[in-house]
Design a protein around this nucleic acid. Structure first.
Lengths: 220, 220
DNA sequence: AGGAGTTTGTGAACGCGAGAACAAACCGGC
DNA sequence: GCCGGTTTGTTCTCGCGTTCACAAACTCCT
């Protein structure tokens, strides 16, 4: 389930606050979901709660972490060390959840010899060697859209079986490869959509159906 | 619908390739969805296609853009100019889709007078003035988790009605405020979960939990 | 020890989105 | 002008996820 990581973080927060046990209501509130949904999700993993009491925070946290797989160490390579790639390399949330960035790769020679987050940026050609050397299974793509498919193909060829894609393009990969996409601008567009709906009827009266001459101007 | 931005980008790609019209099958393939779903989504906006022919790429693109609201200009403020905030400020995908970063704010005085993406980093206290000055409706939070709720409260108080949150915490805001969350580490955890399932039973030594008898046997 | 109060785990109904299938409509050829 | 091929728009059905509601089970107090 995609909600387990959310529960995991909520549990970590509770644990840091010194909470020893919690009810499904509390945890659901901290995770932002319905309590019945939370209980059903947890019961899918096993009966880790105690009726009349609740859940032991640290125990449940370990069980979820084990289920997700973050009790083990996941080596990760990041390809494309632009602004976003650098931000990802510096993101502390990775390391604290069992993900270890073992290499930063970039096709641009100007970026080699650069050091980001204490790691040397290396040529993209080193991908295969690094993947085999560190048994990397997860790759992150933070390149421009044009290069993303090539990078994905090379990753698959090297044996990587999970890809996190930040490039704004739909990648095609073999069925056995898991792929997830994060698109920053799509999230903003969804907000803009709701925002427009909110203010609509107040002062905006747009004429539908006509394509203005400037319609293609705003795209790049 | 959350898929409209995906269609919009696929249409832009097709248009850049010089495609004048396209069928729902082609567009669905480019967007990575089912063609029936695509047609149903588009019919929700109106009858913008021609039976036996398909959709006019530029016309449909404008209609979707108008529906989402990206034909107008959306001023945006970014709060928290760490690595992620800088990456967001530099992200070209925002400007090309009608989002204009009008201000970068940070509580840390050491970051003021810094210039990121050609924009001065200013104190967080300037939020209210900037929001009123530029009629900002959308705010982006890229601060650490501890500061995020405070930032959100201040944003709401200033009149911001849509928030994109990158901090790893569940924010509570009034009902009329839209909020979307992007969590980079959660995506990786989901990949790790599937990755673990893939390799389970092959060569992984079972990690023993603290419940020996009830450990789930993965051999079935 | 027993009962009252709480909380988990789960069975059942509800709602919603996804996908298949089909009728209406359009284009091009004859 | 009509007919076959093509593609949209829409209806219907199916399956899944969510939510309500309740029994089982545990703790605490008397």
């Amino acid at each position: 389930m995609a909600r387990l990581p959310v529960y995991l973080r909520a549990l970590t927060t509770l644990s840091d606050q010194g909470t020893g046990t919690c009810s499904s209501e509390e945890l659901a509130a901290a995770a932002g979901v319905n309590s019945a949904k939370l209980r059903k999700d947890l019961s899918y993993l096993g009966s880790y709660g105690t009726r009349g009491v609740g859940y032991d925070v640290d125990y449940l946290r370990y069980q979820i972490a084990r289920e997700i797989g973050v009790t083990q160490d996941w080596p990760v390579v990041i390809v494309g060390i632009g602004n976003l790639g650098q931000a990802l390399a510096n993101y502390s949330g990775f390391r604290s959840r069992g993900f270890r960035v073992v290499a930063l790769l970039d096709a641009d020679p100007a970026r080699h010899e650069q050091v980001v987050a204490g790691i040397d940026v290396r040529p993209f050609d080193h991908l295969e060697r690094i993947v085999h050397e560190h048994a990397v299974a997860i790759g992150v793509i933070a390149t421009p859209a044009l290069a993303a498919q090539d990078v994905a193909d090379r990753m698959v060829a090297c044996g990587i079986t999970s890809i996190l894609n930040f490039a704004p393009i739909v990648l095609t990969v073999p069925a056995q490869v898991d792929i997830r996409k994060v698109d920053l601008s799509i999230e903003l567009q969804i907000l803009a959509y709701h925002e427009q709906r909110k203010t609509q009827g107040a002062s905006r009266a747009e004429v539908p159906g006509e394509v203005p001459a400037t319609a293609t101007e705003a795209t790049a």
